[in-house]
Amino acid sequence: MTAASTLASRVRSIGRGFAVTAAAGTLAGAATVGYGLWEKNQFVLREETLPILPAGQAPFRVLHLSDIHFVPGQNTKAEWLGSLAALKPDLVVNTGDNLSHAKAIDPLLKALAPLLEFPGVFVPGSNDYFAPRLKNPASYLLGPSKTKPDPVELDWPRLRSGFGMGGWVDLTNRNQSLVLKGLRFDFSGVDDPHLKRERYAGWPRGTKGQDSNPHLKVAVIHAPYQRVLDHFTEDGADLLLAGHTHGGQLCIPGYGALIANCDIPTWRAKGLNDWESKGRTTPVNVSGGIGTSRFAPIRIACRPEAVLLTLTSPA
Rank of each mutant, 00 (worst) to 15 (best):
D235A: 15
L63Q: 15
D230Q: 06
V11R: 09
R46G: 04
L309Q: 03
R46Q: 14
D170P: 04
H64R: 13
A24T: 05
E198C: 09
G254K: 08
F43R: 03
F163A: 01
V220C: 01
S5N: 09
R158C: 04
L84Y: 06
F163D: 02
S139V: 07
H101W: 03
G15A: 04
G254Y: 08
Y200C: 00
A301G: 08
K77V: 05
S188T: 07
I252Q: 07
A306P: 12
I105F: 01
S161P: 03
W156N: 02
Y35D: 12
P214E: 01
M1L: 08
F187K: 04
D67W: 15
L53I: 11
A86V: 10
L240S: 10
R133Q: 06
A86F: 13
P304D: 11
V93L: 03
L63A: 09
P119F: 10
I252L: 10
G25Y: 12
Y225R: 14
A257G: 08
A237G: 06
A24R: 11
D155S: 02
T147D: 05
K196D: 15
R184P: 04
S145T: 01
L258Y: 06
N136I: 01
P204R: 00
Y140F: 07
G248I: 10
G162N: 05
Y140R: 12
S66A: 15
A219H: 02
F187M: 04
Q249L: 01
L240Q: 15
L37I: 06
G254A: 09
P283E: 13
